[in-house]
Design a protein around this nucleic acid. Structure first.
Lengths: 200, 200
DNA sequence: CAAGGGCCATACTGTGTCGTATGGAAAATA
DNA sequence: TATTTTCCATACGACACAGTATGGCCCTTG
């Protein structure tokens, strides 16, 4: 409970042989485990071993396991909101370009890591109200930002709303499926989906 | 290991006060728990208590916990395949009607239970190869059946493929999101999505 | 140099769970 | 009726994990 706040990373000392951990390190490690094993795999002792320390360290930084989970949720929420605002920022004239970039973002493999976290948290939200609330907030923010993009691109309000929802639903749904053997030309298939979302 | 096979439900005896359980009963109960708590919540002793018996019963019917999980997977797989073939069966002329019925199926609330199981198993598949294989098989079967429907409705092969994938991706994605506060007229929103999937 | 606080290790309690071993009651079979 | 089979209870050992208590090392500050 004496733990410092998040923003002020308390000035690392020089060399305790292995540099000490801050809340941020624990959250980062926890997020990785979350992505690979889900919430149920996020256990204190396992996480501690992964950080090269013991539980003693953990319970100095966090009150209990729930505190870590809450911190992970908050960190993810803020990260996603920052991210979506950066991604959907546009200057007049480049709306369609931003939309296509947004679609590519979720269809590509590079941020497979981000999607794993996303799926783990959404599954978590099925059993936990706090996680559900965070997911709802993130969804709303994303949908609103996408809606503005579509509207700026010249679509009607209702049209923009349905397209936004379709975009994200499709992104998450695809990440949940195993459709690789369904078609031998996946890039073309994805291209078709993109057109279905943005085309008139 | 002395457990009987699945098909031959071994002729229930008359009255052991509380009628004895068969593998099918365990699988059914396990599937319910799976829907509500995920694979990690599927524990032997908890399940036994839920069935009104103790572990002793469980380990008579199943070798171990893994055997139950495997049985749940197989049961789900067969049920889904049977179901999709019934749902996508069509007589000439009623193709579009079947497609719309298929869309409604996943958009409606009635089979919320089925969707919960679906999501739990898909999350399970992210950490387990056997579950992933089952999901892949089910996905392939569904996509193929839907593709045939779209083709029969007069679409090209590539068009039918992309629409099929879009349909299921959208269905699962929506079930993963919390978009209720995004629009005050949800039925209209869903209607728009449906049109985006089937409309020319 | 002494005192205090930041960061962590160790040891311990308690609980939940898997799997096994074994015994027992009721039904089926002989 | 005697015996086997079916189905389940009880008891046990072995871990894994959450959380607490306590002590110790190192760095900082007075």
């Amino acid at each position: 409970m004496t733990a410092a706040n998040l923003p002020a990373q308390p000035s690392r000392p020089s060399h305790p042989s292995r540099l000490p951990l801050g809340q941020a390190d624990w959250i980062a490690a926890a997020t990785e485990v979350l992505a690979r094993e889900g919430v149920s795999g996020l256990r204190v002792e396992v996480l501690a071993k992964r950080c090269g320390v013991t539980k003693g360290s953990f319970y100095w930084h966090f009150k209990d396991r729930q505190a870590l989970l809450a911190a992970v949720l908050q960190h993810w929420k803020q990260g996603r909101i920052r991210d979506i605002e950066k991604t959907t920022f546009f200057k007049p004239g480049e709306e369609l370009e931003r939309i296509n970039h947004l679609i590519e973002l979720y269809g590509a493999n590079p941020n497979r890591k981000g999607m794993e976290i996303e799926l783990a948290i959404r599954d978590w939200a099925r059993y936990d109200d706090k996680a559900a609330a965070v997911v709802e907030a993130v969804d709303l923010h994303r949908l609103e930002c996408a809606r503005k993009l579509f509207v700026a691109a010249g679509m009607s309000e209702t049209e923009a709303k349905s397209r936004s929802l379709l975009l994200y639903a499709c992104a998450f749904g695809l990440s949940l499926m195993r459709y690789a053997p369904f078609d031998s030309n996946l890039p073309q298939l994805k291209q078709r989906l993109s057109e279905r979302i943005v085309a008139v």
